[in-house]
């Protein structure tokens, strides 16, 4: 018996470029990361709206017509779905990522997530009240 070559003959399994397509948790992770594109799009859309509002009533009407076109609606329905996915995944991971300690004892996850969901509902209700009152 000869001693095996210690370095040359290792096998390294190559990582497929699209490694995240083959396994459900990885795919969900990638969708979570991709939701940031729709977060950015939503803010761009809001800024376009503000710019139209700044330009006067005619520009605002024009923007509302554009926003009612089927493709813009489809885009924003997708944005709504993915930003909701962002919110929920964000609130699921935050209690694990932040250890809140009170008197030396770490709070259970629901006591961190609870205030987050409460704040989400409160802020959403405030925005609705502000705009449609």
């Amino acid at each position: 018996m000869t001693a095996p070559d210690d370095t040359a003959a290792r096998y390294r399994r190559p990582v497929p470029v699209l490694w995240w397509t083959g396994r459900r948790p990885y795919l969900l992770f990638m969708i979570r990361e991709f939701s940031s594109v729709f977060v950015a799009w939503s803010v761009v859309y809001l800024l376009l709206l503000v710019r139209a509002v700044a330009a006067g009533p005619a520009a605002y009407r024009g923007f509302m017509e554009l926003s009612a076109s089927w493709w813009m609606l489809a885009l924003n329905v997708a944005a709504l779905a993915l930003t909701l996915f962002h919110t929920i995944t964000w609130f699921v991971v935050t209690p694990k990522a932040v250890a809140v300690r009170v008197l030396g004892v770490r709070l259970p996850a629901f006591m961190v997530a609870g205030p987050l969901y409460t704040a989400w509902i409160a802020v959403s209700a405030f925005v609705v009240w502000l705009l449609v009152r």
Partner: peptide, 12 residues
Amino acid sequence: AAVLVPVLVLLF
């Protein structure tokens, strides 16, 4: 974004 964006996208 988690707190503010969904409601804004839903409305506007």
